[in-house]
């Protein structure tokens, strides 16, 4: 069982991580690099009359930096894949079959738990954005991911309103309590960049998680077939 979970997770995670990295380079990285020019002071917003809207496309690719991004993207999605695959295997032990079709739903739910719900309180950060204390944000992030994951699990597998009621409370709790926020707003980057960055980071995340769920389901059922043959 361990080997089956890990094999499916590593292959699917690596594939989804590569897709996420490619989408990141195409759509997210240019905004990030542009924002870094404001973070370092090379560009200023409202400072010198006008702010150029198309600078980042001229910045040359940094091979070491981008190579590390590929590695860490693959690593991150392998980590997520191990957790998602474990939960799906646990559900299958309890009689809920896991396949590519249900894998897609698992992937979307994983995206909601690990990216969408935390971003409701902590929007994907553009470099240079002001934010609350790091440690507090990390604790809130972990708590939100765990509570949202538990809430989604209870909605999916709960059988009565007591379970669903508890699920709604778990899903709402982190946002009712609220995420740690910055005391002062001094971010140097234009809000146009921050908004575009947040929506693109989330959309790339959704695509990567959908791929992750699909790959996991396909590999899982494939191993079943190989085992049965």
């Amino acid at each position: 069982m361990f080997q089956k979970v890990v094999t499916s997770a590593l292959i699917a995670g690596f594939g989804a991580g590569l897709i996420a990295a490619l989408l990141q380079f195409a759509f997210v990285q240019p905004i990030l690099l542009h924002a870094e020019l404001f973070e370092t002071g090379a560009l200023t917003h409202f400072g010198n009359g006008q702010t150029q809207a198309h600078v980042a496309t001229e910045i040359a690719a940094d091979l070491t930096r981008d190579g590390l991004s590929v590695i860490f993207s693959a690593l991150t999605y392998c980590g997520y894949a191990l957790i998602l695959m474990s939960l799906a295997a646990l559900a299958q032990e309890r009689g809920h079959a896991f396949s590519a079709r249900t894998g897609l739903i698992w992937g979307i739910c994983g995206f909601i738990a690990a990216q969408l719900a935390p971003s409701f309180g902590l929007a994907p950060e553009l470099p240079g954005m002001s934010a609350g204390e790091l440690e507090a944000r990390q604790i809130w992030w972990y708590a939100t991911v765990i509570l949202t994951g538990a809430g989604i699990w209870m909605i999916a597998f709960g059988r009565n309103w007591t379970m669903w009621g508890i699920a709604i409370a778990l899903l709402a709790a982190p946002h009712v309590i609220g995420a740690p926020s910055a005391d002062v707003l001094t971010g140097p980057a234009p809000p146009e960049l921050a908004a575009e960055f947040a929506s693109r980071a989330l959309t790339v995340g959704l695509v990567a998680w959908c791929c992750l769920g699909l790959f996991l389901g396909a590999l899982w059922t494939n191993q079943d077939k190989a085992g049965a043959a």
Binding site: A20, Q29, F72, T76, E125
Partner: peptide, 25 residues
């Protein structure tokens, strides 16, 4: 990959952490 703040690790994972929505800095 997403949370430990050791300098080398943070720098290497920087862009992915931002793009994936982890709290960074």
């Amino acid at each position: 990959a997403g949370h430990v703040q050791a300098a080398t690790l943070h720098d290497a994972a920087h862009d992915v952490r931002h793009a994936t929505g982890f709290p960074c800095h």
